[in-house]
Simulated scan of single mutants.
Amino acid sequence: DDRAPNSKRIEMPFCTDGYSLRFYSKAEGDSVEVNLTAAIARHQTDGDTVDDLLSNCTATLRTLKTIDRGKVNYISAGFDSRAARQEKLQVQDAIVKALADERFVLLYQPIYNLERERITHCECLVRMVTENGKLLSPAAFMDIAKNNGLMPRIDYLVLKMALRQLRDWADNNIHLKLSVNVTAVTFESERFVQQLQRLLYETGASGSQLIFEIVETEAINNLDSAKALCDRLAKLDIQIAFDDFGIGFTSFEYLRDLPVDFIKIDQSFIRYLYKRKSDQLLVKSMVDMALALGKKIVAEGVEDDGSADLLRDMGVHYLQGYYISRPKRVNEIDLNYSMPTL
């Protein structure tokens, strides 16, 4: 069949002589439905060898198990080829080795306090170091780490490095806070607080200098348990920042129900703020609501003085972005930075 992959046949049930390949059986009060699902790959288009064709079909069927059954499906142009899957396995292996060797480093992006007119904390941004010394951004490995259950290991390694840096600053009479990103799977783990307390004890860092950033788009699964965890962290003097605020449907529900200290307005609303009236109206509404609820506000993605001026006038407390500083290694941060007068 040489019909195009986007043929309507893709959406039709797999039929033989007019009957769908769904079988229903009822015996002795028990009922069972069996669905047969098919994947079709084209020689040369979707693989040149039998092994490639079977591998690609198997991967497609594995995906369809949780999506749609009882139909015939052509492999689409966007599917993961065998070569792409092998490449992901190589990246996964590289992540595991980097974890074993602790080949992850932190860069620090300063966050400017408009009221105090100085840098008061930094966000930790993780990079993976390859075996040949190249730095990889999270875009190169984070999704694969998430899909293979490796994020808790990365989260705890990042947390340990951040706490060591806090202790080092404290020993040198430098009073900066650090924001650390924590994925939902780690944040909601029953062992999270226990592991955190162990790391605080081992490093000698103070919880009062720590801010956890949680991301709505990571889909907090249980709002009640997340709220209880925030309360437990507050007892350790640890603050919570709600990251990527505004880009999800549940942002305002979380703002209402979670005892967070900061909201970080997503950079997609900030990057062109000076040029877009619609973004200005949206950001102003977010700021007004957050202020009414007593939250501190961080604007991410600030890249020009015009946007910085608008954000100050709106009542935003902190600015983060290339206008202030790019992410840097710890010894490159200008702790005495003062923003130009607006």
Score class of each variant (00 low, 15 high):
140 A>H: 11
190 E>H: 10
160 K>M: 04
136 L>V: 00
159 L>E: 03
93 D>T: 12
176 L>A: 07
118 R>I: 06
210 L>F: 11
83 A>R: 14
83 A>E: 13
206 S>R: 12
132 N>C: 07
189 S>M: 02
125 L>T: 07
145 A>R: 08
160 K>V: 01
193 V>Y: 06
194 Q>V: 09
106 L>A: 07
163 L>Q: 07
112 Y>F: 12
82 R>S: 15
183 T>Y: 09
181 N>W: 04
174 I>L: 15
84 A>M: 13
175 H>I: 08
208 S>C: 13
210 L>R: 14
89 L>Q: 14
106 L>M: 12
169 W>D: 03
186 T>N: 01
196 L>M: 02
150 L>Q: 09
198 R>S: 06
188 E>I: 00
112 Y>Q: 02
201 Y>E: 13
91 V>T: 13
135 L>G: 01
156 Y>K: 08
143 D>K: 12
215 V>G: 00
202 E>H: 05
187 F>Q: 02
189 S>V: 00
92 Q>R: 15
195 Q>W: 04
125 L>G: 11
158 V>H: 01
154 I>V: 14
201 Y>T: 13
140 A>C: 09
207 G>Q: 05
117 E>H: 14
144 I>N: 09
151 M>D: 03
128 M>C: 00
96 V>A: 14
128 M>R: 06
100 A>R: 11
192 F>C: 03
87 E>G: 11
110 P>I: 13
192 F>Q: 01
149 G>C: 11
171 D>Q: 13
84 A>C: 03
189 S>D: 15
198 R>G: 01
136 L>E: 03
161 M>D: 08
205 A>Y: 08
181 N>P: 04
150 L>E: 07
136 L>M: 14
123 E>T: 05
118 R>K: 15
99 L>W: 09
114 L>C: 04
124 C>I: 04
